[in-house]
Amino acid sequence: MELRIFTEPQQGATYDDLLAVAQAAERLGYGAFFRSDHYLAMNVDGLPGPTDAWITLAGLARDTSTIRLGTLVTSNTFRHPGPLAVSVAQVDAMSDGRVEFGFGAGWYEEEHTAYGIPFPSVKERFDRFEESLAVITGLWETPLGETFSYGGTHVRIENSPALPKPHQRPRPPIVMGGSGKKRTPALTARYADEFNVPFNSVEETVKLFERVRGACEEIGRDPKELTYSNALVLCCGRDEAEIARRAARIGREVDELRANGLAGTPGELIEKIRTYAEAGSQRIYLQVLDLADLEHLELVAQEVMPAVADL
């Protein structure tokens, strides 16, 4: 079981805040530093305001050296697929091949309205998402010296030089996730390297993993080629007082976090992570909401990470 750090900068974070967390995660041995891709805070003021996901990761690519970097997940509605392929490939090169590309159709209507971004229907968002997956992977995987063309309903590409290429060949790993019943599993089976279940129970995780495995089998892909993962909010403490303090800092109740997240003493976390491992999960993205509390990361790295490494 690999533990990764997952942040939500739209809730209020500067680049320096994110850098401190990423460098601590690198020093402490976490597998990756991921961030969300949102432009509007949820239920808080979000000061000083949002930061762009790929500008952030470009900076981190140069300000870290070993930790893997990614988004959970980049919203397709925010960027045209051609320029997005260029941006991700460039950040991958800047990091010497440490980028992982979390990608989704987009869902938060209010942030689109707040920043003048079109927000089509669910069907159109998934139609556009599917075309963007074809375009981005097509651009990255086109051999050097050849051109790429694509004639979709929403995206048309003609004789693109398909440059630049990412450092990782044929492309960075693609992470997809969600609880959709049909298109999400089908697109995951076709394009993804990892399937992530965000903020859900062990029981629902089993169902969603099985749905993706079934979609893989339908197209003749070995389901074992995918990595399976979860994202869960983190709230760990050595005793009840420390757990309660950390829960209060993020505006949550301890009992609710214990039920729906990854909360409690290190021993409690180890046992809960074990249940997710038994359900087939290979990675846990620890959603860290208090970015100033680097001791939180140290506690988990020292007392949880070694105990779950072999699960």
Rank of each mutant, 00 (worst) to 15 (best):
E111P: 03
H112Y: 13
H112R: 01
H112G: 13
H112I: 09
T113I: 15
T113E: 13
T113F: 14
A114S: 14
A114V: 08
A114E: 08
A114M: 07
Y115L: 10
Y115S: 12
Y115H: 10
Y115D: 07
Y115I: 08
Y115V: 07
Y115K: 11
G116Y: 02
G116I: 05
I117N: 01
I117V: 14
I117K: 04
I117R: 06
I117T: 02
I117S: 10
I117D: 02
P118N: 06
P118I: 04
P118A: 11
F119C: 05
F119W: 01
F119M: 07
F119S: 05
P120I: 04
P120C: 10
P120A: 09
P120H: 05
S121E: 12
S121G: 09
S121I: 09
S121D: 13
S121M: 13
V122E: 14
V122A: 13
V122G: 07
V122K: 15
V122L: 12
V122H: 11
K123G: 13
E124A: 12
E124N: 11
E124R: 06
R125F: 05
R125N: 07
R125W: 07
F126Y: 14
F126M: 13
F126D: 03
F126I: 12
F126K: 02
D127Y: 13
D127F: 09
D127V: 14
D127I: 07
R128S: 01
R128D: 00
R128K: 14
F129R: 00
F129G: 00
E130C: 01
E130F: 03
E131A: 05
E131K: 00
S132R: 02
S132W: 01
S132F: 05
S132I: 08
L133Q: 00
L133E: 00
L133W: 06
L133Y: 06
L133A: 01
A134I: 08
A134T: 11
A134F: 05
V135L: 02
V135C: 04
V135H: 00
I136Y: 00
I136D: 00
I136M: 12
I136H: 00
I136L: 10
T137C: 09
T137G: 08
T137W: 10
T137H: 07
G138M: 05
G138D: 10
G138V: 11
G138S: 11
G138W: 03
G138L: 08
L139V: 13
L139R: 06
L139F: 11
L139E: 03
L139A: 06
L139K: 06
W140E: 08
W140N: 05
W140Q: 06
W140D: 07
E141I: 04
E141V: 11
E141S: 13
E141P: 08
E141M: 14
T142P: 07
T142E: 09
T142K: 12
T142M: 11
T142Y: 07
P143D: 07
L144C: 15
L144T: 15
L144Q: 15
G145Q: 10
G145E: 12
G145N: 09
G145A: 09
G145P: 13
